[in-house]
Computed example of a mutant assay.
Amino acid sequence: MAAKQINPFLKSALEIGPILVFFAAYLLLKDRTFTLGGTEYQGFILVTAGFIPLMLACTAALWKLTGHLSPMQIVTSVLIVVFGGLSVWLNDDRFFKMKPTLIYLLFGTALGIGLLRGESYLRTVMEGVMPLKREGWMILTRRVTALFFGLALLNEVIWRTMSTESWVYFKTFGLTAAVFAFFMTQGKLFKRYGIEEAEGKAE
């Protein structure tokens, strides 16, 4: 079932808003320590605890308004609950920092399995946004698969070798910028393999 169209600003706010709130809250509380039930928690853990219900509420609102959630949105929500919950429960920020790695590994692996079967699973979820010929989808899928594995590796390097603050900046802006830059460099592929609207109607 196709997703209902909603105000693009509202859609962006529901998708990106929780991440920006997480970033702002982290900057506000990063140097503070809180004692709850006799246990000390760093600001990062408290911010993570607040991020989980906020992200779920925004995802639920998107589903309510559009009647649709992408596989990535569903998997991301599940992993946020699992790994964010583990970070809060065990008072260990490493679990939450691993989440992007697992997201990119899961989707990179899924796309890779599709490629081994001669299929583009990326086409299944994005064809309505970017109509391409089959060969174009296969090339783009191979590139996106490599991108996902590369981002998974990069996230591991960042959180294991740099400070929590550096990782938060990377998670908030770096990953988004990397994906945006990647698609901006695919212009030649879209131009070469794109399906014109008239051609699509003729078929």
Results as ranks from 00 to 15, higher is better:
K30Y: 08
K30P: 02
D31E: 10
D31I: 04
D31K: 10
R32H: 09
R32Y: 12
R32T: 06
T33K: 02
T33V: 05
F34C: 01
F34Y: 09
F34A: 01
F34N: 00
T35K: 10
T35C: 02
T35H: 04
L36V: 12
L36T: 05
G37H: 07
G38N: 00
G38C: 00
G38E: 00
G38P: 01
E40I: 03
E40T: 13
E40P: 00
Y41Q: 01
Y41K: 04
Y41P: 01
Q42F: 08
Q42E: 14
Q42R: 15
G43I: 01
F44D: 13
F44W: 13
L46A: 04
L46T: 02
L46K: 01
V47P: 08
T48R: 01
T48M: 04
T48V: 07
A49Q: 02
A49N: 06
A49H: 13
G50N: 11
G50E: 05
G50L: 12
F51Q: 03
F51E: 05
F51M: 10
I52Q: 07
I52V: 14
I52F: 02
P53Y: 09
P53F: 09
P53T: 13
P53R: 08
L54E: 10
M55A: 12
L56I: 13
L56G: 10
L56A: 07
A57N: 11
A57G: 13
C58Q: 09
C58L: 14
C58I: 10
C58G: 11
C58M: 14
T59P: 13
T59W: 08
T59C: 12
A60E: 06
A60P: 08
A61F: 02
A61L: 10
L62R: 15
L62T: 12
L62G: 07
L62K: 14
W63P: 12
K64R: 15
K64A: 14
T66Q: 13
T66I: 06
G67F: 15
G67K: 11
H68M: 07
H68D: 13
L69D: 11
S70P: 00
S70W: 03
P71M: 09
P71K: 05
M72T: 11
M72N: 10
I74A: 08
V75C: 02
V75F: 07
T76L: 07
T76V: 07
T76F: 03
S77T: 11
V78Y: 02
V78C: 06
V78W: 07
L79P: 13
L79I: 05
L79R: 12
I80H: 03
I80W: 04
I80A: 08
V81T: 15
V81H: 15
F83A: 00
F83M: 11
G84C: 08
G84I: 12
G85E: 11
G85C: 09
G85R: 13
L86I: 00
S87V: 05
S87K: 04
V88R: 07
V88S: 10
V88Q: 11
W89I: 02
L90Q: 08
L90S: 01
L90M: 02
N91R: 05
N91S: 06
D93C: 01
R94W: 05
R94K: 11
R94P: 00
F95T: 02
F96E: 04
F96D: 09
F96V: 10
F96G: 00
F96T: 04
K97L: 06
M98K: 05
M98C: 09
M98L: 15
P100C: 10
P100Y: 03
T101D: 03
T101S: 11
T101G: 03
